[in-house]
Write a protein that binds this DNA or RNA. Structure first.
Lengths: 131, 131
DNA sequence: ATTTCAATTTAGAATAAGTATAAATCTATT
DNA sequence: AATAGATTTATACTTATTCTAAATTGAAAT
């Protein structure tokens, strides 16, 4: 199924995720839609997010919080979360293939990929902490 | 707080997690408690799991499913999930420090650690698939 | 232009996982 | 035995998400 049917609602949801500087949750997307003058049903936002995810236009991130976040960058990359302020940033440094190979060897699995959530303290929070 | 107060319920919950060959969810723990003749309140099971986690006797795993899983191995290690059957296995091959250092450099974060969920197909599912 | 049919949206109910609360119970100490 | 503190229980609540059935939309066929 290569055809993509971008309805008004799906396009609007996509625009929010694409324009976001952060990694919004479904609730964030909902709020920002309202700010832009839309008022779609909750179910529609979830449906749209799933549709866009299925079509590989966005990615769903499960970073260990209760709510999923969404990311318009669909290329292979990881994430880092600030333990202090909760900010999420991208990690593009690729996972060493060699490590994956060793994991495959250890477990007997055929390894497809890995989801990594790095934890740390962001630059801003570190400079605040010093005081 | 080094003192650990293992009530009957906490001990029973701990026993379930320690004896488990898999990585049970809270609901799994609940069911296995019933199998062993216990009948604790749901809240008590959650409280006990949190207590044991706080005391570092077990670990809470967030593997991207809706429910948390629990692991009696508390040493630093990662997990691999079979995309076919859902099985979860341990990964003890450590992520290279050098990779974490490069992530710190890329992001400007002080890196504390990483949660990794590797995805793949386990040996059993692969041999079944071949047929 | 009208009918038709599938896809989509809507509003609201339902579900799943986990947390909060207040009363009851247990446990250790005086 | 009396008190106090911690824990458990039952139940209500919250949050994130999915489901459902009816209404709406939009494209294709008449």
């Amino acid at each position: 199924m290569k055809t993509i049917n971008l309805t008004t609602q799906r396009q609007a949801v996509y625009d929010i995720v694409r324009d976001a500087a952060d990694h919004p949750t479904a609730a964030d997307v909902m709020n920002r839609l309202v700010e832009r003058g839309h008022s779609f049903a909750y179910g529609t936002v979830y449906n749209s997010l799933r549709y866009l995810t299925d079509k590989d236009m966005i990615r769903e991130l499960k970073l260990g919080e209760t709510a999923s976040r969404y990311d318009a960058r669909t290329d292979d990359h990881q994430h880092i979360v600030c333990e202090v302020c909760g900010k999420v940033d991208e990690v593009t440094t690729a996972i060493p293939e060699e490590w994956l190979a060793r994991v495959a060897e250890e477990t007997g699995y055929e390894v497809e990929g890995a989801h990594i959530v790095v934890e740390g303290v962001c630059a801003e929070c570190r400079s605040k902490r010093k005081k």
